[in-house]
């Protein structure tokens, strides 16, 4: 049932169920139960805007607080238990249960959803930053100290750049988890892309699939953007060694990591 406008009938027919879903994104239509206009670029953009906003607020807060904390703990080699067990426990708590728990105790709304997403974002950022700094070759840190750098210089100019791949891996994990979980935010009255997904009686299959496609695209897009940012902020000298894919070299570096692990 290609209900779309003029140009859409061919691709709609070609793509089957997804053609209709794409049509939902591109063209406004009447809701399944009738009476209301749903879908179309206007509504999708609005929902996407809220989706991204609540996610970015949560991620920014998590990065601002827990990236420095991870750097500090990693530098001092303290709090491994905290940094690592936070991630183990965090992984086990289902995002839906976390959201429901907050709803039940604190109520609905933007701030509560942002808080839940913030909590979800913490473990990968904290753990990866800590582990990333810990695996930096101690000889490099000693060399920096020998050059007369103080603690803050060592963290900013040596440990952070060398930890970047692992830090960014954590940031990407957090981002993906947060954007994915923002999909269930409509349960707390925050109107994200989850709206068509949680209200099938109004939006129907096409709406559910259309919104699911947009969620997937937004998430993959965010992941890509973070990869590009990572590439942009990685110092040139580090990129050269990264492309050095010789097994010999990798073995050497993992040996170093192992040697430096606290017993």
């Amino acid at each position: 049932m290609a209900t779309g406008g003029d140009g859409m009938s061919l691709p709609a027919a070609f793509l089957g169920p997804f053609g209709d879903a794409i049509d939902f994104i591109l063209h406004e239509r009447e809701s399944v139960s009738g009476g209301v206009q749903i879908g179309g670029p206007g509504e999708i953009l609005e929902l996407t805007g809220t989706h991204v906003l609540v996610s970015v607020v949560a991620l920014a807060a998590a990065v601002l607080i827990f990236l420095p904390l991870g750097l500090y703990l990693g530098h001092r080699n303290q709090g491994e238990f905290l940094a690592v067990s936070v991630s183990n426990v965090g992984r086990a708590v289902p995002s839906l249960a976390l959201l429901a728990f907050f709803l039940a105790y604190l109520g609905i709304g933007f701030v509560n959803v942002a808080t839940v997403l913030f909590l979800l974002a913490i473990p990968p950022i904290l753990t990866n930053t800590f582990v990333g700094v810990r695996q930096v070759d101690r000889d490099a840190v000693d060399a920096a100290r020998g050059l007369g750098m103080n603690a803050s210089q060592i963290i900013r100019r040596v440990e952070l750049p060398l930890a970047l791949p692992i830090v960014f891996a954590g940031l990407r994990l957090s981002t993906v988890a947060v954007l994915a979980t923002a999909t269930i935010a409509p349960l707390a009255n925050v109107l994200t892309l989850g709206v068509p997904i949680t209200e099938p009686q109004t939006y129907g299959d096409d709406g559910q699939r259309g919104a699911a496609m947009v969620v997937a695209v937004v998430t993959l897009g965010a992941d890509l953007v973070l990869r590009l940012i990572e590439r942009a902020v990685t110092p040139k000298g580090l990129k050269l060694t990264e492309h050095d894919d010789l097994p010999q070299r990798r073995r050497l570096s993992t040996n170093l990591i192992r040697r430096n692990k606290p017993a």
């Binding site: 994915a180 999909t183 989850g194 969620v215 997937a216 998430t219």
Partner: peptide, 10 residues
């Protein structure tokens, strides 16, 4: 990377 909820519907 694809969110699970999206995958469930797609």
């Amino acid at each position: 990377t694809v969110p699970s909820i999206a995958a469930f519907f797609l």
